[in-house]
Measured scan of single mutants.
Amino acid sequence: TTVEVQGVEYRFDNPEEAEKFAKKMAKSLNLRVELHGNKWRVE
């Protein structure tokens, strides 16, 4: 599972970890998070 934060990609073996990371990043950067296939995008 991939998390893309403002163009930078982070890879996770565990989808739940990816989701937690994406939501945490979105909250700290005041952005929103969307799931596209198996990629979380924070923008």
Results as ranks from 00 to 15, higher is better:
E43V: 15
H36M: 10
A26D: 01
G37A: 05
H36Q: 11
K39M: 10
A26N: 01
S28V: 13
H36G: 04
E4F: 12
H36D: 12
P15K: 07
K20G: 07
N14L: 09
V33A: 15
F21V: 01
K24M: 14
V8W: 07
E34Y: 14
F12R: 00
E17H: 07
V3I: 02
K24F: 15
T2H: 07
G37L: 06
R32W: 07
L29A: 04
T2M: 12
G7A: 03
G37P: 03
R32E: 08
V33D: 02
G7T: 03
Q6M: 13
R32F: 08
W40R: 02
V3F: 02
K39Q: 08
K24E: 14
A18H: 00
K20Y: 11
R41A: 07
R11T: 11
V8S: 05
K24R: 13
N14W: 07
E4S: 12
V33I: 12
L35E: 04
K27G: 08
T1N: 10
S28I: 15
G7Y: 03
G37M: 05
N30Y: 05
L31Y: 06
P15F: 10
E19D: 03
E9P: 06
N30W: 04
K23Q: 09
V8R: 11
H36K: 10
G7S: 04
M25C: 15
M25R: 04
A26C: 08
A18N: 00
L31W: 05
L31V: 07
A18V: 00
E9V: 13
E17S: 08
V42N: 02
L31N: 03
D13A: 10
N38C: 15
G7N: 05
K27V: 13
R41S: 09
F12D: 00
M25Y: 04
T1Y: 15
E19Q: 06
R11C: 15
E9Y: 07
N30G: 14
V42F: 06
V33W: 07
V33Q: 03
E16P: 04
K23T: 07
N38M: 06
E43Q: 11
D13F: 08
L31M: 13
K23M: 11
R41H: 11
A26L: 02
V5M: 07
Q6A: 09
W40T: 02
K23C: 15
E16W: 12
E4Q: 10
D13R: 08
K27Q: 14
N38Y: 05
V42L: 09
T2E: 06
N38Q: 07
A18Y: 01
H36V: 14
S28E: 15
K27A: 15
D13T: 11
N30M: 06
K24L: 13
Y10C: 13
M25L: 10
T2Y: 14
E34M: 11
T1W: 15
K27I: 13
R32Y: 08
R11D: 06
R11W: 13
E9Q: 08
E43P: 06
Q6V: 10
G37R: 04
H36Y: 09
L31K: 05
E19S: 06
K24I: 12
S28R: 14
L35W: 13
L29M: 07
N30R: 08
P15E: 07
G7V: 02
L35N: 07
L31S: 07
D13V: 09
E4D: 11
V5N: 02
E16H: 12
V3Y: 01
V42H: 02
L29H: 05
N14E: 09
K20E: 12
P15A: 12
V3C: 14
E34D: 07
E43M: 14
E4K: 05
R32T: 12
V3R: 00
E9G: 04
E9W: 06
V8T: 08
E16V: 12
H36N: 10
T2K: 07
K20V: 11
A26R: 02
V3L: 02
L29G: 04
E34Q: 12
Y10T: 03
F21L: 02
L31R: 05
M25A: 07
K39D: 05
Q6P: 01
P15Y: 08
F12W: 02
F12M: 02
L35Q: 10
Y10R: 03
E4G: 04
T2S: 10
E34H: 13
E34I: 13
E34R: 12
Q6W: 11
W40L: 06
E19F: 10
P15R: 08
D13K: 09
P15D: 07
N38R: 06
E43L: 14
V3K: 00
V5I: 11
E9K: 07
G37I: 04
N14C: 15
T1V: 11
N30L: 05
K27W: 09
L35G: 04
V3M: 01
V8F: 09
T2N: 05
G37Q: 06
M25P: 00
M25H: 03
G37F: 05
F12Q: 00
R11P: 06
N38L: 06
N14M: 07
E16S: 10
N14D: 14
N38W: 04
E34G: 07
A26Q: 02
R41M: 13
W40D: 02
P15G: 07
F12H: 01
S28H: 13
D13S: 11
M25E: 03
E34L: 08
K39G: 09
R11S: 09
N38E: 07
P15S: 09
R41E: 08
V33M: 12
A26G: 11
K27R: 11
A22R: 01
E19G: 04
F21E: 01
V42Q: 03
L29Y: 04
P15W: 08
K39P: 01
K24V: 10
E17A: 10
P15V: 06
A26Y: 02
N30K: 08
T2L: 14
F12N: 00
G7C: 15
V42C: 15
H36R: 12
A22K: 01
L29I: 02
R41C: 15
L29K: 05
A26K: 01
F21N: 00
L35S: 05
E9S: 10
L35M: 09
E43A: 13
K24D: 14
H36P: 01
V5H: 05
G37E: 09
N38H: 06
V5G: 01
N30A: 05
G7I: 02
K27D: 12
V3G: 00
W40F: 06
N30H: 09
K24C: 15
K24T: 13
A22N: 00
E4N: 09
E9L: 13
L29S: 03
A26E: 03
E4T: 11
A26V: 02
V33N: 03
V5E: 01
E9R: 08
H36T: 10
K23S: 06
T2Q: 07
L31Q: 05
E16R: 10
E9I: 13
A22V: 03
Q6I: 10
R41F: 15
K24Q: 14
K23F: 12
V3D: 01
V5K: 01
F12V: 01
R41Q: 10
F21A: 02
V8G: 03
E17P: 02
A18G: 05
F21M: 02
L31T: 06
N14F: 08
Y10E: 00
A22L: 03
V33R: 03
K39V: 14
E17G: 04
D13I: 09
F21K: 00
K23I: 12
N30S: 05
N38S: 08
V8H: 08
A26I: 01
G7Q: 03
G7M: 04
E17Y: 06
K23L: 11
V33E: 04
E19I: 06
E16G: 10
F12P: 00
N14T: 12
R32K: 12
V5D: 01
E19L: 09
A22G: 02
A26F: 02
E17K: 07
E19K: 06
A22H: 01
L35T: 04
L29F: 05
Q6T: 06
R11Q: 11
T2I: 15
E17W: 05
D13W: 08
V42M: 05
N14S: 12
A22P: 00
V8E: 06
K20T: 11
K27L: 14
K27Y: 11
E34F: 13
K20R: 12
L29N: 04
E43D: 13
W40S: 02
A18T: 00
L29C: 15
V5T: 02
F21Y: 06
V42Y: 03
E43F: 15
V42I: 07
S28Q: 14
W40Q: 03
L29V: 02
F21W: 07
N14R: 09
W40H: 03
K24S: 13
G37S: 05
S28F: 13
V33P: 08
W40M: 04
F12K: 01
G37D: 11
V5F: 08
S28A: 14
E19P: 00
N30F: 05
E16C: 15
T2P: 03
S28Y: 13
Q6H: 11
E4I: 14
L35F: 14
D13Y: 08
H36I: 14
R41T: 13
T1A: 12
T2C: 15
N38K: 07
R41Y: 15
E17C: 15
E16D: 12
T1I: 12
E17I: 08
N14G: 06
E17Q: 08
E19Y: 11
R11G: 05
E19N: 03
Y10I: 05
H36L: 12
L31I: 05
